[in-house]
């Protein structure tokens, strides 16, 4: 899937994560802000990267503001942001879900 426009999903409320996706040139670049970055930063980034790769996105500039989201939430928000960015919200990517 190709990123056609900058898109966002998620909120800044507790237990959620806000994912912002924009076009990138050098692979998946993630700028993560999280209170638990030290403990779970790698895990969060790996969930985002894996999910994007499953959607066929190899390059993206990602900004993530985490408020203690669980992996399933991170994955859901990443998919939503990616589908908005790729303008494919009306064709859900079932195989990734």
């Amino acid at each position: 899937m190709e990123i056609k426009e900058t898109a966002i999903a998620g909120t800044l409320e507790s237990s959620d994560i806000q994912i912002m996706l924009a076009k990138g040139a050098n692979g998946i670049e993630i700028d993560l802000e999280s209170d638990v970055k030290k403990q779970f930063g790698q895990q969060i980034e790996s969930v985002i990267t894996t999910t994007l790769n499953q959607l066929g996105i190899e390059s993206a500039s990602v900004k993530a503001v985490d408020k203690g989201a669980l992996d399933c939430v991170i994955k859901a928000r990443t998919i939503a942001a990616a589908q908005r960015a790729g303008q494919t919200t009306d064709e859900p990517a079932w195989e990734v879900l």
Binding site: T11, L12, E13, K67
Partner: peptide, 10 residues
């Protein structure tokens, strides 16, 4: 604060 700022950003 988080709720209002995320609403504004969205």
């Amino acid at each position: 604060f988080n709720v209002i700022v995320s609403a504004l950003v969205n």
